[in-house]
Computed example of a mutant assay.
Amino acid sequence: MSKNKTYKISDLATEFGITTRTIRFYEEKGLLAPKRAGSTRIYQSADRVKLKLILRGKRLGLTLDESLDIIGLYDPAHGNIDQLHQLITKCQEKRTQLQQQYSDLEVMMLDLRNAEKKYQTALAEATSSHQTKIPV
């Protein structure tokens, strides 16, 4: 892809499967700074790459600020070492967070299964003896 290639907002929206409103939101937040030709936004290759990184960060569960911090560490002259360290740290943090959420969901699923069994048993008993007491 050429470094001098330009894109219209609709080009980027189509490529990344997002709305033009999403791109304008990122522009309003100062994340993208397209040039203008009248009322037409003209995005450069660097804007496209930044948008791609923002969307990747979003998929990984990063906040916009976290994505911006990581994008700001871009330093190809020094191998992007700081950026890569930060990415690894954020991935580890998100994995830990998701693992905890997963464990919490497993506990909730077990609680729901147990409650459902208890209520089914109570319903069967109530139906057979016309009791209406619901166990807690």
Rank of each mutant, 00 (worst) to 15 (best):
Q86P: 02
G79C: 03
Y43K: 04
R24V: 09
L12N: 01
K8T: 00
A124F: 09
D75C: 02
I88W: 03
P135R: 07
Q83E: 01
H130C: 08
L87P: 02
P34K: 11
A37I: 13
Y7Q: 00
L60Q: 09
S45T: 07
F25S: 10
V136D: 14
N114F: 04
G61T: 12
G61F: 05
I81W: 13
E106P: 15
E116Y: 05
T40A: 10
L68R: 15
E106H: 15
R95S: 11
Q120G: 12
D69C: 06
A13V: 01
D11Q: 09
S128H: 08
T14R: 14
L12D: 00
R95Y: 12
N4C: 04
E106T: 11
P76Y: 12
K52H: 13
Q86L: 10
A37D: 05
I42T: 02
E116H: 06
V49I: 10
M109G: 04
V136A: 07
G38S: 09
A33C: 11
D65I: 09
Y119V: 02
I23P: 14
I70Y: 05
Q83T: 04
V136R: 09
T14E: 10
T6M: 05
G61H: 06
A124V: 05
A122Q: 12
D75T: 04
H130D: 11
A13E: 08
I71T: 04
G61Y: 06
G57W: 12
L123N: 07
Q120P: 06
Q120N: 14
S103H: 15
S45D: 07
L53W: 06
L112G: 06
R36F: 12
E27I: 04
I54Y: 01
V49T: 15
L110T: 12
L68K: 14
S2I: 00
L98K: 03
R95Q: 04
I18G: 07
A37H: 08
I9W: 06
